[in-house]
Design a protein around this nucleic acid. Structure first.
Length: 358
DNA sequence: AACACGGGGTC
DNA sequence: GACCCAGTGTT
């Protein structure tokens, strides 16, 4: 097409034109089934496409319908989710699936006002589901959209302030293609992911290079702006490996903290680093294990989370140790069950390093 | 408005 | 180490 024509094309027309030529082919784009789209969108919250892809495949295969999802045990959902992080997404999905069965008679909603009622579905996800499944004109605003709009239009408002959220949503609502909202939403996100990347964006091939404010004013590296989050705290986890015959002691974490409802080993947490001798004398350790000697296994593992640094030390406990008092969350299970129980990364990566023989 | 909530990739 | 990722829920 003529260059002068292209310059005069609308923002959305340029984007859709670019997308039809250069967009990615992703499995969840082959369907309009709101259930399948919902699966993909929840999985992709704060998660890269490449990381979410195998999880999407296993969810679709294992739980092909919303009814399958609603009827599954939460532990099954969490096991499928194992390793993806932000596990409240999985727990909320289970609640949402049950809500679809009861409040929507098993038919997954497609309207924005309906889907946003579901737990785990906010403005972004409701816009995505409604625009992709029924072409409702709701503009998605995700990390990609913040970046593209902030740069092209030179907006320096913090994207995570309430003012910023409002401004970017309003602009997105004005820019969305009213005829092809679903296509437009896919297009702007792909464009942000492939061209207008966070680092080293591909400005020379960008369809907005001639009009991009950030490019013209040398702000590519400073936009979008964002309020910085606070730094992490340190936590020290001491895990105890207790075995009795073919069984091993596990614990299920409670709600209200990281890794809610996931399995791990019996744990003592300290605010400061502690060595084996300090742990042996810890009141809680004595209450549970008496005068037993915990044997440290290798060196501590550091696990970095968004707001926490976890330092985990694993201890081998004497074989067939009789535990004095057992927390209600503790239980013995056969080692082969480790394949089916949902655990967090610290635990399954420890297990996979062959420290535990099955 | 500020913070919690995972795990992995990039520079 | 800092920042980001197809964000949402709670306080």
């Amino acid at each position: 097409m003529e260059f002068s024509t292209f310059v005069r094309m609308s923002f959305s027309a340029k984007l859709i034109g670019w997308y039809l030529d250069h967009g990615r082919e992703l499995p969840w784009r082959q369907t309009q089934d709101p259930y399948v789209i919902w699966l993909s969108e929840i999985i992709l919250q704060q998660t890269r496409v490449e990381q979410g892809m195998p999880y999407f495949q296993s969810f679709v295969t294992t739980l092909p319908t919303i009814e399958d999802f609603a009827k599954a045990e939460e532990d099954v959902i969490l096991r499928l989710w194992q390793g993806l992080g932000y596990y409240s997404r999985a727990r909320n999905m289970h609640k949402a699936a049950k809500m679809v069965m009861s409040a929507f008679e098993g038919s997954f909603p497609t309207r924005y006002e309906d889907v946003i009622q579901l737990p785990g579905v906010g403005p972004y996800t409701a816009s995505a589901i409604s625009s992709f499944s029924s072409n409702e004109a709701r503009a998605v605003v995700d990390g990609n959209v913040y970046r593209v709009l902030a740069r092209v239009f030179g907006i320096d408002t913090d994207t995570n302030s309430s003012a910023g959220k409002k401004i970017f949503q309003q602009l997105a609502d004005e820019l969305i293609d009213q005829k092809e909202p679903g296509l437009y939403n896919q297009a702007i996100m792909d464009f942000g992911a492939l061209i207008c990347k966070p680092k080293q964006p591909l400005c020379p091939t960008c369809i907005f290079e001639d009009t991009c404010v950030a490019k013209a004013t040398n702000q590519i590296d400073t936009l979008p702006k964002k309020i910085k989050s606070r730094k992490s705290r340190n936590r020290y986890f001491h895990y105890f490996i207790l075995r009795k015959g073919n069984e091993i002691m596990l614990s299920k974490r409670a709600e209200g903290d990281i890794w809610a409802n996931l399995h791990e080993f019996p744990l003592i947490e300290t605010d400061e680093p502690a060595d084996a001798e300090q742990i042996r004398l810890h009141p809680s350790f004595v209450a549970h294990f008496g005068d037993a000697h915990p044997q440290p296994i290798s060196t501590p593992i550091k696990q970095v989370l968004s707001h926490q640094n976890i330092f985990a030390q694993f201890y081998q406990m004497p074989e067939n140790l009789e535990v004095r008092s057992k927390k209600s969350s503790w239980f013995y299970t056969f080692s082969e069950n480790l394949d089916t129980l949902a655990m967090h990364k610290l635990i399954f990566s420890f297990l996979s390093r062959d420290h535990i023989a099955k």
